[in-house]
Simulated scan of single mutants.
Amino acid sequence: MDKIKILVVDDESRMRKLVHDFLAREGYEVVEAADGEEALDIFYSDKEISLIVLDVMMPKINGWEVCREIRKISKLPIIMLTAKGDESDELNGFEIGADEYISKPFSPKILVARVTALLRRANKIGETADIREAGGIVMDKTAHTVAIDGQNIDLSVKEFELLDYFMNNRGIALSRERILDSVWSYDYFGDARTIDTHVKKLRSKMGTKGDYIKTVWGVGYKFEI
């Protein structure tokens, strides 16, 4: 089997090498870009890229703009890196379509773990078909697709996982903290409003079926038909 290819984008050569070395040790093939412009050139020319580790503050084109551009045509998993600790930056990252957000300095081992988790969820090739249905929603976890009343909808990796979690826990009131712990699958130190951002986007993409995701005041959310 060919190696999974990951694009690492950072204007600091030492940071690129650090991430490159840790990912390579896990058997990933790594390509590098030193700025946003080079990153987009590689993204458009290399169709084998499976995931992008993307720094925010870069010359020419910053990480936010790179993420926005990629999201116009691709659901490729994106992990954003930043030296900023402002929660508004993190919320902005999720709003434009980032799947994960890591603040510098960070543990390379944690980064590798998140890369592996995202790839595992986004690439289900070869697995037994796993289909879930509820209220006109058909989720094919093997193909990583969701159809509503026969029409496919385009979800990011995290939106897909969030809907999967809601459908798995139908009729149960779920706190934001519980959702973060279960869907993000790691110790999360950011603002629980991240959940609200994802739920808002998910509801919008689901159209009238978005009403299935009900707000439980003082608690969180509940999926109910």
Score class of each variant (00 low, 15 high):
170 R>T: 15
171 G>C: 04
171 G>M: 00
171 G>I: 03
172 I>S: 09
172 I>H: 11
172 I>T: 15
173 A>K: 13
173 A>H: 13
173 A>Q: 11
173 A>Y: 04
173 A>C: 05
174 L>M: 14
175 S>C: 11
175 S>D: 13
176 R>W: 05
176 R>D: 12
176 R>T: 05
177 E>Q: 12
177 E>M: 11
177 E>Y: 06
178 R>I: 10
178 R>T: 09
179 I>Q: 01
179 I>P: 00
181 D>V: 02
183 V>T: 10
184 W>L: 13
186 Y>D: 15
187 D>S: 07
187 D>Y: 00
187 D>F: 00
188 Y>D: 00
189 F>N: 05
189 F>C: 01
192 A>L: 05
192 A>C: 09
193 R>T: 06
193 R>N: 09
193 R>K: 14
195 I>L: 11
195 I>M: 08
197 T>Y: 06
198 H>R: 14
200 K>I: 09
200 K>Y: 06
200 K>M: 06
200 K>V: 04
201 K>A: 04
201 K>H: 12
201 K>M: 12
202 L>P: 04
204 S>Y: 14
205 K>L: 09
206 M>W: 02
206 M>V: 06
206 M>F: 03
207 G>T: 05
207 G>K: 08
207 G>Y: 11
208 T>P: 08
209 K>R: 14
210 G>L: 12
210 G>I: 07
210 G>C: 10
210 G>N: 04
210 G>V: 10
211 D>I: 01
211 D>C: 03
212 Y>M: 12
212 Y>K: 07
213 I>T: 14
213 I>P: 01
214 K>H: 07
214 K>D: 06
215 T>N: 12
215 T>A: 12
216 V>I: 12
217 W>M: 09
217 W>N: 07
217 W>Q: 13
219 V>A: 07
219 V>E: 08
220 G>M: 10
221 Y>T: 02
221 Y>K: 01
222 K>L: 04
222 K>V: 14
